[in-house]
């Protein structure tokens, strides 16, 4: 038998198997918003993911838009014109963001997903499929990312297998804004500078108390000591620069005086402003 006649079952896995993805909170917000606004009869929403591939190979999903589609048991249709129009518009604003894949709501992958995935594979090599379980099927909102692995016999494609890839859901951008206003359905006002400061300080204080409690517990023998925790605490304490009390006092006082000077300057400017205004508009008797 000639070797060429062998039919070989082969997996064409993506070039880098240790692919991972990172998702910007905006994408999640947008997907949820699209889902809330979906047409009556639609079961799910799908759309395009935009972003870039970071130097370390991580796919950074930074933006997305929904694409209208139709799904019936024996027919799927995607509004390709819409997809292209939207893509052109997005590229005008930020040419650096390119298609990296597509999203769908719902848990896991369905049969029609393979067809959509096929379409996106023609737009971009090796697209990512992001699923957001807006139905909270298992009681949790599962967010997963997949890539497709093609299984073929010889040249004939047989099946496409969706393989889950790690997804980084830490949302630094959302943390910057504060979960307090993002996780409630309605927040009456934005926190101002000092309120934010207060919250942060309270958190710091709680942390210090926690550490105290832990150390006390270990010393009293209530908790089994853990060397790695001890090392972390030691590192943290030594991270504070060793300063003599007088040097520290000088440092703090100098800084305080700088700030006071700035406050003084801004107050005097304000006084000057109100004075100037009075002189300019009120007293013009000629």
């Amino acid at each position: 038998m000639a070797a060429s006649e062998h039919t070989v079952l082969q997996f064409t896995a993506p070039s880098s198997t240790n692919l991972s993805a990172k998702v910007h909170p905006l994408v999640l917000f947008n997907i949820c918003d699209c889902y809330v606004r979906r047409p009556d009869q639609a079961e799910r929403v799908i759309g395009t993911l935009l972003g870039s591939v970071l130097p370390d190979g991580t796919v950074d999903i930074r933006n997305c838009y929904a694409v209208p589609h139709n799904e019936s048991p024996d027919l799927v249709a995607l509004d390709i014109d819409y997809h292209h129009n939207m893509l052109v518009s997005h590229q005008k604003v930020n040419p650096k963001e390119v298609i990296v894949g597509w999203f769908s709501t719902g848990l896991g992958v369905t049969g029609a997903s393979a067809l959509f995935h096929d379409f996106y594979s023609r737009e971009v090599p090796n697209p990512i499929h992001l699923t957001v379980d807006t139905g909270f099927t298992n009681g949790v909102g599962t967010i997963k990312a997949y890539v497709s692995v093609n299984l073929s016999i010889g040249d004939r494609p047989l099946v496409a297998q969706f393989q889950e890839i790690p997804l980084d859901q830490r949302m630094v951008e959302a943390e910057r804004i504060g979960f307090d206003i993002l996780k409630t359905t309605s927040a009456d006002k934005l926190p101002n500078e000092l309120e934010g400061m207060e919250v942060s300080m309270e958190r710091l204080l709680a942390l210090i108390d926690d550490v105290y409690k832990y150390v006390d517990d270990v010393v009293e023998g209530r908790v089994a000591p853990d060397n790695s925790i001890g090392r972390f605490i030691a590192d943290t304490v030594t991270a504070l620069p060793k300063l003599s009390p007088s040097a520290l006092d000088k440092l703090v006082n100098d800084n305080l005086q700088d700030q006071l000077l700035l406050l003084y300057l801004s107050s005097i400017t304000r006084t000057q402003l109100s004075l100037a205004e009075k002189l300019n508009t009120a007293a013009q008797v000629l």
């Binding site: 910057r176 309605s186 009456d188």
Partner: peptide, 30 residues
């Protein structure tokens, strides 16, 4: 300014909120 979110988003964010006691804005503020 008032901020509002859909119930769906609120559920997701509650789910995704990190358990870490310190978050990015604390570092920024301090």
């Amino acid at each position: 300014i008032k901020v509002s979110n859909s119930a769906l988003i609120s559920a997701f964010m509650t789910e995704l909120e990190s358990d870490m006691p310190v978050i990015q804005c604390d570092y920024d503020r301090l």
